[in-house]
C-alpha cells in the first residue's frame, strides 16, 4: 500500500560514527507514529533517512518501493518533510514558498496548473494563513513561519508526512489546531505521519504508537501507556516525571529535582510511578 513505511536495518554514520544503527520500523498506512527520545537519540536522522536525504545502509521502503530506486521527483511525491530548522529564503512570499511544495507535479517547464495554485491556496487557508499569503515569509512571526512550512508540506500532497518538531514555536492553541488539522487529514485521507516530538504529552495525545530512541536504537515501542513510564523516562532522559493517565489520555509532568512536594507517585491522581 502506498502509505506504508518500512525501515529495515537502518544504519546512518556521521563522521564515521554510527548515529543510528540497525533500526527496524514498520508503519501502516494512516498510522501516526511518534519518535521520542532525548537530544541526540537519532530522531531527526531517522526522518531524514526516511525522506531519502542521507547516505545510509539498510532499506527504506515507502509503499513497498525502495527509496533508493526512486528519482528525486518520485520520492517527493511519496514523502514530504517538515524540517526542524527550515531555511526561510529572503524576500519570498508565502504563496511562492508554499508553491515549492507543488514542484513534484509540475511539468518540464515548471508552469503551475490551476490545480497547483488551488492546492497551495487550500493549504494556506487550512493553516489560517490566508491574510499572509502575499506577505514575505521572513516578516512573519516564528509560529506563523512554522505554519507556512507545514502548509508547504501539505501542498506537497504525499501519502507520508514526516514532521521534525513541527510545532515547537507555536502557542498551545495554535499547536493543537495544527495537529488536529493534520490528524483530520490523516483520518480522512489515510495520511501516514511520523513525527519527532519532544513534548511527551503531545506525543501521547496524537500518536497511535510511540517509538523511543536512545543512542540511535529503539529502546521502547508501543502505546503511550506502555512507553511513557517514569522509569523509562528517567532511564533515557535522566528526568523525573509524573505520568497521569485518565480520560484525557496520558499526561507527562516534569518534576524539578529535589522538589519536596513530589511524592514519588503516590498522589491522589491516577499517577503511575
Amino acid at each position: 500500500m502506498i502509505g506504508t513505511v518500512e525501515i529495515r536495518e537502518l544504519t546512518v554514520r556521521r563522521s564515521g560514527r554510527p548515529v543510528v544503527h540497525g533500526l527496524d520500523l514498520a508503519v501502516d498506512r494512516g498510522e501516526w507514529v511518534g519518535l521520542i527520545g532525548p537530544n541526540g537519540a537519532g530522531k531527526s536522522t531517522v526522518l531524514e533517512a526516511a525522506a531519502g536525504l542521507l547516505d545510509s545502509s539498510g532499506a527504506v521502503e515507502i509503499g513497498g518501493k525502495s527509496m533508493r530506486s526512486l528519482s528525486p521527483i518520485e520520492r517527493a511525491k511519496r514523502v514530504s518533510l517538515v524540517p526542524q530548522s527550515p531555511v526561510i529564503p529572503p524576500g519570498m512570499s508565502v504563496i511562492d514558498y508554499v508553491m515549492l511544495g507543488r514542484n513534484p507535479y509540475l511539468g518540464r517547464f515548471g508552469v503551475e496548473s490551476p490545480d497547483d495554485v488551488l492546492a497551495a491556496n487550500v493549504a494556506i487557508a487550512d493553516l489560517d494563513l490566508g491574510p499572509f499569503a502575499s506577505k514575505r515569509v521572513e516578516d512573519l512571526s516564528g509560529g506563523e513561519r512554522q505554519r507556512v512550512v507545514i502548509a508547504r508540506a501539505l501542498a506537497q500532497a504525499c501519502p507520508v508526512l514526516l514532521l521534525d518538531e513541527p510545532t515547537s514555536a507555536l502557542d498551545v492553541g495554535v499547536r493543537m489546531g495544527v495537529l488536529d488539522h493534520i490528524d483530520a487529514i490523516r483520518r480522512s485521507c489515510g495520511l501516514t505521519v511520523i513525527s519527532a516530538v519532544h513534548d511527551l504529552t503531545l506525543a501521547a495525545q496524537f500518536c497511535d504508537r510511540l517509538v523511543m530512541l536512545a543512542g540511535g536504537s529503539i529502546v521502547a515501542e508501543g502505546s503511550a501507556e506502555g512507553v511513557l513510564t517514569p522509569d523509562t523516562i528517567r532511564r533515557h532522559y535522566g528526568a523525573r516525571v509524573r505520568v497521569i493517565s485518565d480520560d484525557d489520555g496520558v499526561i507527562v509532568i516534569p518534576i524539578r529535582a529535589g522538589d519536596s512536594r513530589e511524592d514519588g507517585g503516590s498522589g491522589r491522581m491516577a499517577s503511575r510511578i
Partner: peptide, 18 residues
C-alpha cells in the same frame, strides 16, 4: 524556477524533488 527551489537549501530542495 528550480533556482527558486534551491533557496531553501540543498536538503529541503532535495526533499521537494530537486
Amino acid at each position: 524556477r528550480v533556482l527558486d527551489m534551491l533557496t531553501v537549501g540543498d536538503d529541503e530542495a532535495a526533499s521537494l524533488g530537486v
